[in-house]
């Protein structure tokens, strides 16, 4: 089972738009809430009201500051959860077979009842996408909401990951990245979606859309200044105004 199924035809995953993510953490909490109540053991919290609170989260939003060689620094909010890699090292290292990648859609899951909590899969993941739950001692990770996306107890429109459903700015997209005609694949093609740490050879399914270019510096053209003045002062303006008004419909005075 820790053998990878080989390239799956269907590659369900997320596309995250770094141009749009405002860093609100909504996806972080809706993920925590859904996955605490659903798939497997709850995501526990240690010292939740104490000096050093910490807990299990399957999705976390970082932020980075990027300083271009020229111009102002930019800030990029950066959500990160499991990328459901095609060559998932977290799966092959697992000694128990608890970690596996689904044949039918490529989702990488942990079968908690087989997990011994050795942590090796988390070591193998370059992205920090797996967290060992401190209370239950089993490995937790993004399930791509496998218990939502096919769930017949949910209305059809809700069969998408909790984080995608909740994202206020629409920065998260869910779909089949194995299908070149899917909306997500088109988005990736249009916007130049990229992989995180491609050199790690994990072949992530999730893609990131880069921030659009920012802070276009104004270029002044001496011959055609931004706005041609029509007057220099109030008086001149009134003169212009009278002319302009008479040009408006019904304006002959």
């Amino acid at each position: 089972m820790t053998q990878l199924p080989g390239p799956t035809a269907k590659k369900l995953g997320l596309v995250i738009d770094l141009d749009t993510c405002v860093g609100c953490h909504a996806c972080v909490i809706s993920c925590k809430a859904w996955n605490t109540e659903n798939y497997g053991v709850p995501l526990s919290d240690q010292e939740p009201y104490g000096a050093d609170p910490s807990g299990t989260f399957l999705n976390r939003v970082h932020s980075y500051e990027v300083q271009p060689a020229q111009g102002t620094a930019q800030l990029v909010h950066f959500p990160k959860s499991c990328l459901h890699c095609e060559d998932a090292p977290c799966v092959t290292v697992c000694p128990t077979g608890a970690s596996y990648k689904r044949v039918e859609d490529g989702i990488v899951l942990v079968n908690e009842s087989d997990c011994i909590g050795c942590g090796l899969c988390a070591w193998a993941c370059p992205y920090g996408a797996r967290e060992l739950d401190a209370k239950e001692g089993v490995m937790k990770k993004c399930t791509l909401c496998v218990d939502r996306i096919y769930n017949e107890n949910l209305p059809e429109e809700d069969r998408e990951p909790a984080c995608v459903r909740t994202c206020p700015s629409g920065a998260r997209h869910f779909g089949d990245l194995g299908d070149a005609d899917s909306d997500v694949s088109k988005l990736v093609a249009e916007r130049g979606g990229f992989d995180l740490m491609p050199e790690q050879g994990t072949k992530p399914v999730n893609k990131y859309l880069p921030p659009r270019p920012k802070d276009a510096e104004p270029q002044i053209d001496i011959l055609a200044p931004f706005l041609e003045p029509i007057a220099q002062d109030g008086k001149g303006f009134v003169g212009w105004l009278d002319k302009a008004l008479s040009a408006l419909p019904g304006g002959a005075k």
């Binding site: 770094l18 953490h25 972080v28 910490s54 989260f57 976390r60 939003v61 970082h62 932020s63 980075y64 500051e65 990027v66 300083q67 271009p68 060689a69 620094a73 930019q74 800030l75 990029v76 950066f78 990160k80 990229f194 992989d195 995180l196 990131y208 880069p210 921030p211």
Partner: peptide
């Protein structure tokens, strides 16, 4: 981060 093409990347705020 895939952001290197914009400039020098520095961690700003951690997720928690």
């Amino acid at each position: 981060t895939g952001l290197g093409h914009i400039g020098k990347v520095r961690a700003f705020e951690p997720p928690h």
